[in-house]
Structures are given as structure tokens and as C-alpha cells.
Write a protein that binds this DNA or RNA. Structure first.
Lengths: 156, 156
DNA sequence: ATAATATCGTTAGCCAGGCTAACGATCTCG
DNA sequence: CGAGATCGTTAGCCTGGCTAACGATATTAT
């Protein structure tokens, strides 16, 4: 029998590979939006998290403020977001999505989800149930991974 | 009750999100290698696919030749790969990994797999079985989504 | 055999998107 | 009010994408 460890390592590997292939596929859908990945992602936060300051946006996207300044400037030039002064704090810049920004994002999202959803439509009820349980485990796995720093010499 | 379609779309969405979070997590492990994603990926091809020409490498990474020239030059400066002239065709540049390049890559691979495998170790037998079946469905899903079978890249 | 063509990698030059350092404007608190 | 903190921008650098153009080499046609 395959050892306990080997089987689990193999599963980890398959999962890893599957995630890579899935996202590679979906990226092609994103290309159709005409927006780069960083812009698309930032726009998504603005659309769904409402008006947001530049700093919040930078943190959400795990990027430094100067980088986010560039991205927002690009989105603004394309008419997808607007900068609004905050009435109570003059240091803040509130970023809001324009109607066009919302439309573009939602269309892209629909495109992205469509191909995956179509594939899901092709599953049997049994497979669907298996997928559902698998995703739950998957999610647990991810939160478990997050808590493992895996630093070589964290000892002090 | 939730409609047939809605439930499947929701699952597609969760799967999408889970894949994103997993890869985001693993990228942090890659950072420890000191190599950027494009360099790491290119090095991986060189290590596992043996000596390759620059053009092959560019195609494998889905990048144009001038871009690959830059990446290879960077790897070469770090002493991870070497350019060798082809004895039969003077136009070709063969790229080979140095011992150091191999070592760096394999260490990174081990790091990457470790965190995920550790997480898998924490699963119960039941969860493990669920994950296993889920992954099978997941893989079927991906092949259903795929349209054009571009050149495979040996992702580590 | 040589001329035309095709292929390969590089160079030059552009752009987006990362970063740090430094700064001006603004707010907050002593 | 003044000192310090916070926020966003600017400046300047790097990597990694691209296209266009080119030189060197192979290949093919004449």
C-alpha cells in the first residue's frame, strides 16, 4: 500500500497543478476585458467595496501606495473610476467606480464565470456533491496553509 | 430553494476563489527563492527539459523571444544558467542550468510542496477521501474548460 | 554556386507595474 | 500654536512585457 505520506503529497501536488491550470484558463477570459490583471483586480475592489481610499485599496491589493497611485491614474484615464476628495479629511482620496467601470467589470466577471459554470453544468449530481465536499476541504486546507509561516529559523 | 443553476454557479465561484487563494499563498514560498516568478518558471523549464534553445524556452513560457532574452540574461548573471553555442546550427543558443541553478530550483520546489503537504497531513481520513474525489471532479472540469492545448509548461 | 529567403537571437525603444525615498498637505494631539 | 503622524503624490529605479529592425546563419531555388 502506498504510504500515508506519499499519498498525501501526491494529492497536494495534483491540487496544486489543477489550480494552476484552472487559473491559466480563466486568465484568457480576462484578456477580453481589455484590462490588465492589476487594473481588473483593483477595479473589482472599488466596485464591490464601494468608495475606498487609495491606501485601503493599496493594502487590499497588497501593493505600495505609489504603485496604486499609478494604477488608479490609469483607470481614471480610461474613465472607469473617479477620485473624490473626502469632505472630512483633506488628506484622503476616495476612489469610486463610474457607471462604465461597473459595467466593464460585471461583464468581465460574467465572462469569467461563464466558462467555468458551463463546465459545472456538465457534471452529474454525484460529481456535483463530490465537488462540493471537496471544495470545503480545499477551503480548510487553504486557511491551514496560511497559518504556517515555514520560516527556516524563526527561533530566537 | 436554491435553483439548480444558482447552486452550480455558486460552486464555480467558490472554486475560482479557492484556487486564487491557494496560489497566492504558494507564491510566498516562491519569494523565498529570491527569484521572480518569470525567472523561476523559466529556470524550471531549463532544469527539467534539459538544454533548450531560447526560442523553445520563449514558446514554453508563452513569451516573445526578446523578452526571453532578458530573462535568460538575468538568470545568467545570477549564475543559474549558461548559454552554449549549438555545434550544428550557429543560429541557436542552447540554455543549460548550472549546478547552482538546479540546486536553487529544487530547494524552492521542496519549500513549495512542503507547506501544502503539511496542510494535507492535518486532514482526517474522511476529509482526505472527500478531497481526493473532489480533485478528480476538478480535473475533469478543467479539461472540459480547456479549448486550446497550448504547449505545456512544467510548473514546479 | 550563388542569390534569395527564412530562421534565430539580439538590440533598441516603448509601456505597465513593482519598489524606495523624499515631499507637501493635512490632520491630531500636546 | 507647534510638533509629529498620516496620506497621497512625485521622482527615479528596476523587471518584464511588446514591436520593429538587424546581423548572422541556414536553407532553398535558380
Amino acid at each position: 500500500m502506498k504510504s500515508h505520506r506519499a499519498k498525501r503529497a501526491e494529492l497536494a501536488d495534483q491540487l496544486h497543478s489543477a489550480a494552476i491550470h484552472l487559473l491559466r484558463q480563466l486568465r484568457k477570459e480576462d484578456d477580453a476585458s481589455g484590462l490588465s490583471a492589476p487594473r481588473l483586480s483593483a477595479l473589482s475592489v472599488v466596485v464591490f467595496a464601494g468608495p475606498v481610499t487609495l491606501g485601503q485599496l493599496a493594502r487590499a491589493e497588497q501593493v505600495k501606495p505609489p504603485t496604486m497611485t499609478k494604477i488608479v491614474t490609469g483607470l481614471e484615464k480610461d474613465g472607469l473610476v473617479e477620485r473624490k476628495a473626502d469632505s472630512h479629511d483633506g488628506r484622503l482620496t476616495r476612489i469610486v467606480a463610474t457607471a462604465r467601470g461597473q459595467r466593464i467589470l460585471l461583464e468581465g466577471r460574467a465572462r469569467r464565470v461563464r466558462s467555468l459554470t458551463q463546465a459545472v453544468e456538465g457534471l452529474s449530481e454525484t460529481e456535483l456533491a463530490q465537488l462540493e465536499r471537496g471544495i470545503k476541504v480545499f477551503q480548510k486546507l487553504i486557511s491551514a496553509t496560511r497559518r504556517q509561516p515555514s520560516e527556516e529559523n524563526a527561533e530566537t
